[in-house]
Amino acid sequence: MEITVLGGCGAWPAAGLACSGYLLDHDGFLLLVDPGYATLPRLLELVPAERIDAVAVTHKHPDHCADLNPLLRARALRDDPAPGLPVHTLPGALDAVLALDRPGMLDEAYDLQEFAAGEAFEVGPFGIETMLLPHYVPNAGLRIRADGATVTYTGDTGPSPLVAELAASSDVLIADASYAEEVPEDSAAYLTSARQAALQATEAGVGRLVLTHLVPETDPDAALRAARDGFGGPIDVARPGLTLDVPQQSG
């Protein structure tokens, strides 16, 4: 399994960057996770829109799903429209994004497949387990596996023992790290710091930690320093172009 980061900003895209977006490739099947603000131009630098095989969205906030609209437009508004794109998400999470265009304009461009948090399902070669994690709105953490390789992605979440439960023994944990050291009091139940993400990664016994959803004011180097105090394995900050190869595990 190969993971390519399209963006990792929280709330809004900083200059030259993009919000949450991750392209997972296994045996040529392309799964796009969380097409947030400004991710589509980065995606189109890699593959044409019609090459995407499926999309998974963790929650309704636009920094995680806004660029689904231009992705669908890029697939539908052409001489040879692409087939309907399977889109997996929580009930109602994409109502606002899918209502941006005139009624019926993009109806044939997607195949909405809603799931309840806690359900598991298959998407091409990927098996996906889901878990409701604490955020301002319903947010589904995703545990994604393919041929023994496992990646867990929190979406946006407050600190919770459920993160370590979902991520247990994952090869890679892509974790909300909105702030380096401390989350402001009014958001402490709904967002996570890099320091907290590192402790959760250690508890889960993951192989690698990727810090994501850094708000534009968060210094990536400060986030890395904070995370290194709590996690001894490799740590990355989610930046456009970061690519990770997650090898198949034997046994």
Rank of each mutant, 00 (worst) to 15 (best):
D221V: 10
A149Q: 00
R102D: 15
D63Q: 03
P138V: 11
H64F: 14
V151R: 03
R73F: 10
T192W: 14
L44C: 08
H61C: 02
K60S: 15
V137E: 13
V183N: 00
P62Y: 07
M131I: 11
I174P: 02
D229I: 01
P86Q: 10
Y153F: 15
L209Q: 04
V33L: 11
L72A: 09
A66G: 06
L142A: 06
E217K: 01
G8K: 03
E203V: 07
P103N: 11
T152K: 00
L211E: 05
L166V: 09
N139A: 08
A140E: 02
L209E: 03
P41Y: 07
T58N: 10
L40Y: 06
T243L: 12
S187T: 13
D34I: 01
E165W: 07
Y136N: 04
Y136P: 01
S178W: 09
Y179P: 02
L98N: 05
P86C: 14
V151K: 00
T89W: 06
G104A: 12
I235Q: 00
L162K: 08
T89S: 15
T58M: 11
R225S: 12
G207T: 07
D229M: 05
M105Y: 15
L191R: 04
H88R: 01
V246I: 14
P103A: 12
E185A: 15
W12V: 07
L211F: 13
D245Y: 14
E122G: 13
E165L: 05
L94T: 08
L30E: 04
L72P: 06
L142N: 01
A109E: 09
V33M: 07
L209G: 00
G155I: 01
C65A: 15
D25M: 02
R51I: 05
T157M: 11
A82V: 11
P234Q: 09
A11P: 04
D101C: 11
P184T: 08
G8C: 04
V55D: 03
A188E: 13
G16S: 05
D156E: 05
D53C: 08
V151N: 03
V210T: 00
P83T: 12
D53Y: 06
T243N: 10
L77P: 09
A116W: 14
S20D: 15
D27E: 13
G158M: 03
Y153A: 03
V215P: 04
L133H: 10
L142E: 03
L106M: 10
L211A: 08
G141F: 14
A201T: 09
P159G: 03
P83S: 14
